[in-house]
């Protein structure tokens, strides 16, 4: 069963994002919303950890949340997919379950 992990915390402030990565399984998807969107940035103290997770998991970011925090898409880690709310809904449909790492 594939799971959609929804993260809404900046990886620079709280452990929720790290905890999500520690518990996501191969084939799962991770969606960054709200403050977690900043985690999509490349060249941070967190980016290598996220890249490692991307070896066997799909990572998405909600475009509106990324833009709202002033992070342009060209500063993102390669391979992260930008979705809108329709894409968010589709991710919840494509995966069997969702877990919010609040």
């Amino acid at each position: 069963m594939a799971m959609l992990h929804i993260v809404n915390k900046s990886p620079f402030e709280r452990v929720a994002f790290k905890s999500c990565l520690d518990h996501a399984l191969a084939g799962d998807s991770i969606l960054m919303i709200e403050d977690a969107a900043v985690g999509a940035t490349d060249g941070t103290i967190f980016s290598e950890e996220l890249k490692a997770a991307m070896a066997d998991k799909s990572v998405y970011v909600l475009g509106g949340d990324l833009a709202a925090r002033g992070v342009s898409e060209d500063r993102m880690i390669d391979g992260i997919k930008v979705v809108d709310y329709a894409g968010f809904v589709n991710l919840t449909v494509e995966n069997d379950t969702t877990q919010s790492w609040v």
Binding site: I6, T92, V93, T97, T98, S100, V102
Partner: peptide, 8 residues
């Protein structure tokens, strides 16, 4: 079919 949670 799906439960989605929005929280802190």
């Amino acid at each position: 079919d799906r439960t989605v949670i929005f929280g802190d």
